[in-house]
């Protein structure tokens, strides 16, 4: 089992940055120009009426 000091050290180093890195990754995905069309289509997904069949 890692001791208390190791955990604090990990939290203060790696823990400080990995969430920021993940956040940046998400923002890149969201604003990637190529994804715009996909998102615009998805946005309409619940509204596409039609005949309620697969």
């Amino acid at each position: 089992m890692p001791d208390h000091e190791t955990l604090v050290g990990l939290a203060k180093s790696f823990g400080l940055f990995y969430l920021i890195a993940m956040a940046i990754a998400v923002l890149i995905y969201v604003f990637w120009p190529g994804n715009k069309k996909k998102f615009d289509r998805a946005k309409q997904a619940p509204l596409d009426d039609g005949e309620d069949r697969p």
């Binding site: 993940m22 956040a23 998400v26 995905y29 969201v30 604003f31 998102f39 998805a42 946005k43």
Partner: peptide, 9 residues
């Protein structure tokens, strides 16, 4: 839709 993804993560 973009905001829904950002808030999801």
């Amino acid at each position: 839709y973009r905001l829904s993804i950002i808030s999801f993560w």
